[in-house]
C-alpha cells in the first residue's frame, strides 16, 4: 500500500511538486493572515517555509539541492529548477513597460558595476580579517561574495584551493538566502516601490534567485524590473573577477 503510494509519487514528480507547492502556499497564506494579520506577505512566509524545508532536506541527505534530494520530492527540483524558473521570469516581462526599463537603464547599469565591485571588495575585506593574505584566495572569496557562481568559476580560473572555493560558494549562498528573506522587510526603508529602484536593486544585489524571490514577496509588479538587471550580474562578475579584479588584488596584496 505504502509502496504503491511511493511509486505513484516517484513516478509523477512534477505533478507531486504542483500539489505540494499549492498546499504550502495555502498554509502560508493562512499563517500570514492569522499570525501576522497579513503584515508579512503570504509569499514571504512560503519562501521562508521553503528555505526551512530545504535545510531539513540538506541535513537528512547531505545533498546540495535541499528538499529535492529526498526522492519523493524530486519534482520540487524540476519545478524550481533553472529552466522553469527562467521561463517564468521571462514571462513576468509580459506586462512590464519598456519605457520604464529604458528610463532607468543607466541607473541599472551603474548599479550592476557598483554591485559587483562592492560585493567583491567586501568579500576580500572579510577574508583578510579572517587571515587570508594571498591574492588567489582573496579574489576567489571576493568573487563568491558576488554570487555563488562567480566564486567557483573564478577560483577554477586562477587556481584556488577547493577549501577556498567551498567558502566562496557558501558566501554567495548566504547572500542569496538573506536577499530572499530580507527584501520584503527592508523594502520600505530603502524606497523599493517603483520600477527604477527595482532595477537598481536587481543590479546591486545580483543574485537572480535572491532578487526573484525577494521581490515576489515584496511586490510582484516589481519582479520584471529587478530581474532584467539581476540576470546580467553573474555574467559581469565572471567577466570582471578573474581578470581586472584579480589583477588589482594581486597588485595590492602580491
Amino acid at each position: 500500500m505504502l509502496e504503491i503510494l511511493s511509486d505513484v509519487f516517484t513516478g509523477n514528480p512534477l505533478i507531486v511538486a504542483f500539489a505540494i507547492i499549492g498546499v504550502t502556499m495555502y498554509l502560508s497564506y493562512v499563517l500570514s493572515d492569522r499570525l501576522t494579520g497579513g503584515k508579512i506577505h503570504g509569499s514571504a512566509v512560503a519562501i521562508i517555509l521553503g528555505l526551512a524545508l530545504a535545510y531539513i532536506g540538506g541535513m537528512l541527505t547531505g545533498g546540495e539541492k535541499g528538499l529535492s534530494d529526498i526522492s519523493v520530492f524530486a519534482g520540487i527540483g524540476l519545478m524550481g529548477g533553472g529552466m522553469l524558473r527562467d521561463f517564468a521570469i521571462v514571462a513576468t516581462a509580459f506586462g512590464a513597460s519598456f519605457s520604464e526599463i529604458k528610463k532607468a537603464g543607466i541607473n541599472g547599469i551603474v548599479a550592476l558595476f557598483v554591485g559587483v565591485i562592492l560585493s567583491f571588495v567586501v568579500g576580500v575585506g572579510i577574508a583578510l580579517a579572517f587571515g587570508y593574505t594571498d591574492a588567489i584566495s582573496l579574489t576567489t572569496i571576493g568573487a563568491g561574495t558576488a554570487t555563488y557562481i562567480v566564486g567557483p568559476v573564478t577560483g577554477a580560473a586562477i587556481g584556488a584551493s577547493s577549501e577556498v572555493i567551498t567558502i566562496s560558494i557558501a558566501a554567495g549562498l548566504v547572500k542569496s538566502i538573506l536577499i530572499m528573506i530580507g527584501t520584503p522587510f527592508i523594502a520600505k526603508y530603502i524606497g523599493l516601490n517603483n520600477p527604477r529602484s527595482a532595477m537598481v536593486y536587481g543590479g546591486l544585489m545580483g543574485s537572480t534567485s535572491g532578487v526573484a524571490a525577494g521581490l515576489a514577496a515584496t511586490d510582484p509588479k516589481l519582479v520584471p524590473y529587478g530581474a532584467v538587471t539581476a540576470t546580467f550580474f553573474t555574467g559581469l562578475g565572471v567577466l570582471l573577477a578573474p581578470s581586472i579584479l584579480f589583477l588589482i588584488t594581486k597588485t595590492i596584496f602580491g
Binding site: L51, Y55, L67, G80, I177
Partner: peptide, 12 residues
C-alpha cells in the same frame, strides 16, 4: 515556481 526554488536551495 520561486517557492519551489527556495525549497531547492543549499541552505544547509
Amino acid at each position: 515556481i520561486v517557492i519551489a526554488m527556495s525549497a531547492n536551495q543549499n541552505v544547509y
